[in-house]
């Protein structure tokens, strides 16, 4: 359960987040979208304390993140995070990537951590890559390993920051598949993504951000069919039209 109230953050005089409030009940999937620079990454980094904030409050399972006495490593151990650039540890093999934090933070033994790592790699279809180094894997494979690495800590929540944005188109599907299956298991998820298909079918709620504010929030049904604000409508149009225009141009060329 995540509860964000009136979150405000500034970089010097620049206001990155203004008065953001959100609730993500257990087992729900929240999708955050919005134009570049709207503060999406900043917002989800505040949730696990990778960024500090100036006003408001964030609670994760009843623990207050901004509280100076909050033990951040303990809190972060319960919140998995997946990054746009994968961020696997290049000096460790795939299975070592999954074993490091469970051993250091949860105190698991080597054998136990390895068994768990192998089970998770199997789940994302990469058990045969366990002994390889990340550099030998494709982008899509690396991101699936990164998801498994987050899951190895048995987190209560998973945060995704544009997990498919730096992937070649043909690899996006394999990562989204893993995320869809994860959502089906009842994992609480917050996903910054522009994959509108994923948002439409998997999200319980969609939040649209612009200029550091939550401009619109609602069910996918509401958001896509009954977009309330102009800014969200323009954003969706920009995201949808380029593909459709290209298709139309393609069709026209075929007809000539």
């Amino acid at each position: 359960m995540i509860r964000i109230r009136n979150l405000t953050k500034r970089y010097g005089s620049f206001q990155v987040l203004t008065d953001c409030s959100l609730d993500v009940p257990d087992g729900r999937v929240l999708v955050i979208c919005g134009p570049s620079g709207s503060g999406k990454s900043t917002l989800i980094k505040c949730i696990n304390g990778l960024e500090s904030f100036d006003e408001g409050s964030i609670e994760v399972d009843g623990i207050s993140v901004g509280d100076p006495s909050a033990r951040l490593p303990q809190l972060r151990a319960k919140v998995g995070m997946v990054f746009q650039q994968f961020e696997l540890f290049p000096h460790l093999t795939v299975e070592q990537n999954l074993m490091l934090a469970p051993r250091r933070v949860l105190g698991r033994g080597r054998a136990e951590a390895r068994d768990r790592a192998h089970a998770l790699l199997d789940r994302v279809g990469l058990l045969d890559q366990a002994a390889k180094y990340p550099a030998a894997l494709s982008g899509g494979q690396q991101q699936r390993v990164a998801i498994a690495r987050g899951l190895a800590m048995d987190p209560g929540v998973m945060l995704f920051d544009e997990p498919t944005s730096s992937l070649d188109p043909e690899m996006i599907g394999e990562v989204l598949d893993v995320m869809i299956r994860l959502a089906e298991t009842g994992m609480t998820m917050i996903c910054v993504t522009h994959e509108l298909g994923f948002a439409r079918h998997v999200a319980d709620e969609i939040v649209f951000m612009d200029g550091g504010r939550i401009v619109e929030a609602g069910s996918p049904e509401e958001f896509f069919t009954n977009t309330r604000t102009d800014r969200a409508r323009r954003f969706l149009a920009r995201l949808l039209y380029p593909g459709e225009l290209a298709q139309a141009a393609h069709v026209e060329r075929r007809l000539e």
Binding site: L50, P73, R76, V79, M81, E87, L88, F89, A101
Partner: peptide, 12 residues
């Protein structure tokens, strides 16, 4: 990002 990835896993 490497530091963030380590911290996000709960490493000190």
């Amino acid at each position: 990002g490497q530091r963030n990835a380590g911290l996000a896993l709960g490493l000190t």
